[in-house]
Design a protein around this nucleic acid. Structure first.
Length: 914
RNA sequence: GUCCCGGUAGCUCAGUGGUAGAGCAUCGCGUUUACACCGCGAGGGUCGGCGGUUCGAAACCGUCCCGGGACACCA
């Protein structure tokens, strides 16, 4: 057994802890200065490199980095950095969204604080004001992205409202208009009275509100023909705009009434009873009031039956134009007032019934959305949505994980026309002019708008999502046929949360396929859509302001470093599923960074270096061959996991390799040769250097800062950003080395357990004798190493015979090793017996189970041989264990008996062992 | 109302038919010259319930219960 050699000659000045604050900012600046993140089209167009492109989902200009962004960005950065290291030409294109309503209302709030409204400023001044705000305070998130380490090409930063993108918006509008895919029509749309604008379906959230279902009796309008009919409604005030009552055509209760008329109470209008299949005879009374101007279904019914539409609610959601006392009332006030008036007139029948039903709310202001007849611009989505569905169906775009595709199809296959006009000022103005004689002219980008008397441009702007739907190609210079488009469209992957699959992904698909229809390399905006989940708090709860569990990722970056946050997020990023995060876990990731830091420190202190030619994988100790073999496997696994967007598994695999195998075993095993001063030193240094070099490269996409900092000091290299991604050796894994090291691990672990059970301090050397039951030679790296260092076990060779001893036998592939340990001073016989009893019980149970299985002919017949053999082997092991343990129990019993007491009583006699 | 996803250790989650795993937390021991942001050891789970398929089920099927989410014009 060797004793530890002297520490290495060269001491390191490195501190013992990694401090992210010290390096991150400087490193990021160095990366920017070197231009590593800059993409070069020419290298793609020349065929020199394969393109890899990602467009950053543009955050709102009003936004701040939240932990969801941090996840999104981390994953994109992992992919970008990995591909960059793999030799691809990487374009990760950043930018921001002008965020129509959100930005406008923010600036309007500022104005309100000054006692102004946007109308006081006028359109032009207001927009100037918003731009000013954008320049001064917009885009805080871009600076935060730098903290996170995003390797985006800043030279290409875009804004959905900049000139180029505005040109793209204008161009596609004109194109769709000319193809009649954009049209203007009077339709029932979602109207937000608070924002005073139309909304698309996805800007409306439905949640259950308590309402009251009121039953109203409408009476015959013909005194000679007395009858009445009962209808139910939750929006009583809309009855002022009723123009019919509808029943189901097959409903026999009402068959006789169809075609007759009733008088609308309070208003006095005579309205018909009609039959329409939309009516559900089972619901309520089976008869429904029809208000075509304020309900989408009723509007459809009205169209089918040529009913008049009578608007009774204005843009401000007040009653107007009815000629009743309700004019001017807010809708909710009117709801009560109309009901009271109807009740007084005896038209409210039946019991009040509380009624919980889904009510649409504005996703921005939370106002109750009012379905309202309005003249708006729409996209006819049918052909576009079909194309969007087909692109996924035929595999041009792959959705990952595949389960999520069902949700995508649900959406694109059932899409309503998209309302794209907004009654706002901050946005792309609709390029349509109206002439004095009712002409409508959509003006192209290169045309001059009509200037004659009476011509005016449409006041409305386009939905924010209209411009962001163009993002994958508008940012690359479309409608110009730029080199960027030629090189990088279609984009390689879109990384985003599944929550905006509909909002954004489906729309980019529709407009990308349309706008890039004739693109030679494919019209789809992305080859893959990789969806991740939401970040939740440590209890799996959604983060929200009201819960008070929202975390600010920048605070965690300040405290633990960007790498720690990134690694935590990556480790939790299982495809498509939500993840929980807690500060403790970020702290844990920082520990991991420190562990790497210290492993590298150890390597530097011991002269490790990366050899100029690949290290000989068949040379060196079993430990050397084993770790190189493992490294090879880890390189392969990591690479294929990344290719499959399995970020969590890739990160987890690297974590365990780095910590459990490299640090806990290889570094410990390497100490013996490193400290020995023997001829094997150089080889071990080369292996250690090789392993760390590759490990830092593999980890660089996940934790770029710490790896860059460590790698440059380890190798003297310039940067990891463009360093080549490790390649697998192509050699078979070294099974012999793996078996041998497996033996060492088993032996050491067993001895540690024994020592722990005996209460022997890990640092104390205990006399022991080692023997092999096999004729085979014990492995070099076995006990001599095991005896030498901190985290392995320590024994010394005994100088004299033991007063009392215990024997640990460990079955290994090379034979069974027995370790006889002097236990005279510390052994706790009672504890040892208890432990052995327990082991014996386990072994007996094993034997019983194995016998039961093997006794089952169905099992031995049908199960694969390998499984049966495994059970047989298990049975043998159990039998051997039972024998061994029984013997030891007997021996222990004799120790106790001979000495007439527990070992504790002997402690005083022999304290000399150390 | 329709659909989707979950339920595995105290917590958060892996685990696609062959003896139940990780991180954190807990308990015990410990500073031995990379690292106390550390090391070693230990405890802890009838894999939501009940049926079924199978030699064998955490996994496959059925059903129920409990969470989470998406979609939806039922007046």
């Amino acid at each position: 057994m060797t004793s530890p050699a002297a520490p290495p000659a060269s001491e390191s000045d490195l501190p013992t802890q990694y401090d992210p604050a010290e390096v991150e900012e400087e490193l990021y600046q160095r990366w920017l200065d070197a231009g590593y993140f800059h993409a070069d089209e020419s290298r793609v167009l020349s065929g020199e490199r394969t393109p890899f492109s990602i467009v950053l989902p543009p955050p709102n200009v009003t936004g701040n980095l939240h932990v969801g962004h941090a996840l999104d960005h981390t994953l994109m950065d992992i992919l970008s950095r990995w591909h960059r290291m793999s030799g691809d030409e990487v374009l990760w294109l950043p930018g921001m969204d002008h965020a129509g309503i959100a930005t406008q209302s923010l600036v309007e709030k500022q104005l309100a604080a000054e006692g102004l409204t946007r109308h006081d400023l006028g359109r032009e001044k207001f927009i100037e004001r918003v731009w000013k705000w954008k320049e001064e305070s917009g885009g805080a998130i871009l600076g935060q992205m730098k903290r996170l380490g995003d390797s985006v090409d800043w030279s290409r930063e875009r804004f959905t409202f900049d000139d180029g993108l505005s040109a793209a918006v204008h161009t596609i509008f004109k194109k769709l208009y000319d193809e009649s895919l954009i049209y203007r029509a009077e339709r029932i749309i979602n109207w937000c009275p608070g924002c005073a604008t139309a909304l698309s379906d996805i800007e409306v959230d439905h949640h259950d509100d308590d309402g009251e279902l009121v039953s109203l009796r409408y009476d015959s309008s013909d005194p000679a023909d007395e009858f009445s009919i009962v209808v139910a409604t939750t929006r009583v005030e809309t009855m002022l705009g009723d123009t019919a009552v509808a029943v189901h055509p097959d409903d026999e209760r009402y068959a006789a009434l169809v075609g007759r008329t009733v008088t609308l109470p309070l208003v006095g209008r005579e309205i018909p009873i009609i039959a329409d299949a939309h009516v559900d005879p089972e619901f309520g009374s089976g008869a429904v009031k029809v208000t075509p101007a304020h309900d989408p279904n009723d509007f459809d019914i009205g169209q089918r039956h040529s009913l008049p539409t009578i608007e009774v609610l204005g843009a401000d959601a007040r009653i107007y134009g009815t000629g009743t006392q309700f004019d001017g009332m807010d809708r909710f006030v009117a709801r009560k007032a109309v009901k009271a008036a109807l009740a007084e007139a005896g038209h409210v029948v039946g019991e009040k019934s509380p009624f919980s039903h889904a009510v649409g709310h504005c996703s921005r202001s939370d106002d109750v959305v009012e379905p309202r007849l309005s003249l708006q611009w729409f996209v006819n989505v049918e052909p576009l949505a079909k194309a969007a569905g087909d692109a996924v169906r035929d595999g041009r775009t792959r959705i990952h994980p595949p389960e999520m595709a069902a949700r995508y199809f649900d959406w694109v296959d059932n899409m309503h026309d998209w309302t794209i006009s907004r009654q706002l000022w901050w946005g792309h103005r609709i390029p349509v002019w109206y002439g004095p004689d009712g002409e409508v002219r959509c003006v192209g980008l290169d045309e001059d708008p009509p200037t004659g008397e009476g011509w005016r441009q449409d006041d409305d702007v386009l939905d924010t999502w209209f411009s962001s739907a163009l993002w994958p190609f508008s940012t690359m210079g479309w409608p110009e046929q730029t080199d960027t488009l030629k090189a990088f469209y279609p984009t390689s992957v879109l990384v985003t949360g599944y929550d905006i699959l509909f909002f954004w992904v489906a729309r980019m698909m529709m407009l990308g396929l349309e706008g890039m229809k004739d693109n030679a390399k494919g019209n789809q905006p992305f080859d893959v859509v990789a969806l991740h989940g939401l970040v939740r708090d440590q209890y799996g709860k959604k983060m929200s302001k009201s819960r008070g569990n929202v975390v600010n990722p920048i605070e965690w970056i300040d405290r633990y470093g960007a790498d720690a946050l990134r690694f935590t997020l990556a480790r939790g990023a299982n495809p498509g599923s939500d993840q929980a995060i807690a500060e403790d876990w970020v702290r844990g990731s920082k520990s991991f960074c420190s562990k790497l830091f210290n492993a590298t420190r150890f390597a530097l202190m011991n002269g490790a270096s990366v050899p100029s030619s690949p290290v000989d994988r068949s040379a060196g100790s079993a430990a050397d061959r084993w770790i190189l073999s493992r490294l090879d496997a880890v390189i392969g696994e990591t690479t294929s996991l990344l290719a499959d967007f399995q970020f969590a598994k890739a990160a987890e695999g690297l974590y365990h390799f780095a910590w459990d195998e490299v640090c806990d075993w290889y570094v410990e095993l390497a100490k013996a040769p490193l400290y020995s001063g023997g001829t094997e030193v150089e080889h071990t240094r080369a292996v250690l250097g090789t392993v760390l070099d590759s490990l830092l490269k593999l980890l660089h996409p996940f934790i770029p800062f710490v790896t860059e900092s460590l790698w440059t000091s380890l190798t003297g290299g310039e940067t990891l950003v463009t360093a080549p991604w490790p390649a697998v050796s192509g050699q078979e894994s070294d099974a012999a080395a793996a078996a041998e090291i497996g033996d060492v691990m088993a032996l050491v672990t067993e001895l540690r357990r024994f020592r722990s059970d005996q209460g022997l301090a890990p640092s104390r050397r205990v006399p022991a004798r080692i023997g092999w039951t096999s004729s085979k030679q014990a492995p070099d790296s076995g006990l001599s190493v095991a005896a030498s260092t901190r985290s392995l076990v320590r024994f010394t060779e005994p100088e004299e015979s033991f007063c009392a001893s215990a024997t640990v036998e460990v079955p290994l592939s090379l034979g069974t090793v027995t370790v006889e340990i002097d236990t005279s001073e510390t052994i706790d016989v009672a504890a040892e017996i208890a432990r052995l009893d327990k082991d014996l019980a386990i072994a007996r149970k094993e034997l019983e189970l194995a016998d039961k299985k093997l006794g089952n002919t169905a099992f031995t017949d049908k199960a694969p041989d390998a499984v049966v053999d495994k059970i047989r082997a298990r049975r043998e092991t159990a039998l051997a264990d039972i024998d061994r343990i029984s013997e030891r129990l007997a021996a222990l019993g004799s120790v106790t008996n001979e000495d007439g007491g527990s070992a504790g009583s002997k402690s005083a006699e022999s304290r000399s062992a150390e």
